[in-house]
Computed example of a mutant assay.
Amino acid sequence: MSKTALVTGGSRGIGAAISVALKAAGYTVAACYAGNDDAAGKFKEKTGIPVYKWDVSDYDSCVEGINTVEADLGPIDVLVNNAGITRDGMFHKMSHEQWQAVINTNLNGLFNMTRPIWEGMRERGFGRVINISSINGQKGQMGQVNYSASKAGDIGFTRALAQEGAAKGITVNAICPGYIGTEMVRAIPQEVLDKRIIPQIPVGRLGEPEEIARCVVFLASDDAGFITGSTISANGGQFFS
């Protein structure tokens, strides 16, 4: 019987690539999304991966959604916490709402998704939790105090929870992508990409969503059973930690 994987933000961008890669690797995959019904519908039609709609910033919605996925597909063995948002702005202009929205989705969302699944993983003696953080959670980024704080929190969450899960056969790891060629990044004017962003990346290009997905597939596998509490920096050499 194949293992079941749940990917938040799993129908677009990096999340979509992760969902597809896990399915190709033999997992039964569910993709959770928050709001773009049209994109989710097209993703489901193209890939055959079932999609479920809920907001990871709402704990009760997560519990209900997870229960539905497990009723449909079986216990969740692999959780990929990929969902994230930005509400950028310089700190002296940042509103409380901008701060709260990002923290609630990008950091509280990890608790909201992982806590309802954790006890089942402990009971079964197996689990993989993979958190998609960011290069900006490692180095910080002007205009993204909220985002950087949330993504740094994801790394702390990973390192602490890994220590609790290790004896129960559960690994918890983080991946920190750099600039990845998603729809959002490619919407940046080409001149800005060429003059301001790509020159900061030693390999001289944007990453591809599939490159992050391959990291996830490895961390989800039995081959990665001795790796926990780790952070993989997938940023083309832009930042080392």
Rank of each mutant, 00 (worst) to 15 (best):
D55C: 03
K53E: 04
P50T: 05
T105A: 07
G41A: 10
W99V: 00
A31F: 09
D60N: 12
A31C: 05
N82H: 01
K46G: 12
I85G: 01
A34T: 07
W54M: 00
M94A: 04
A25P: 09
K53M: 02
N108F: 08
G35D: 03
N104Q: 13
V29P: 05
P75A: 14
V78I: 12
D77V: 05
G84E: 14
T105D: 00
F91S: 13
N108Q: 07
N104R: 11
S95Y: 09
K46W: 10
I103W: 03
E97K: 09
Q100K: 12
K46N: 14
D58C: 08
I66S: 03
S95T: 14
I49Y: 12
A39H: 13
L110C: 15
E70P: 11
Q100W: 10
T86F: 15
Q100P: 05
N67K: 14
A25M: 01
K46Y: 13
V69I: 12
L79D: 06
V69Y: 14
E45L: 05
G89W: 14
V63N: 00
A31K: 08
D60F: 10
D37M: 06
D77Q: 08
S61P: 06
A40C: 05
V56Q: 02
A34C: 09
G74H: 09
K44S: 15
V63P: 00
G48R: 12
D77G: 10
V56P: 03
V80C: 06
G84I: 11
Q98A: 06
V78P: 09
G48F: 11
Y33T: 04
V29F: 12
T68D: 14
A30F: 07
E64A: 07
S61D: 10
A31W: 05
D72Q: 13
V102C: 05
A40S: 07
Y59S: 03
D60V: 03
A25F: 08
K44C: 11
I85H: 01
N108A: 05
V102D: 01
Q98G: 04
Y33V: 00
I66E: 03
E70Q: 13
K44L: 06
T86V: 12
D77Y: 13
Q98E: 08
G26H: 07
A83L: 04
I66A: 02
M90S: 12
S95Q: 11
E70M: 07
D72M: 10
C62T: 01
Y27T: 01
H96I: 00
N108M: 06
A83N: 12
A71I: 08
N82T: 03
K53C: 00
T28L: 08
G89C: 09
S61E: 11
D72L: 11
D58R: 10
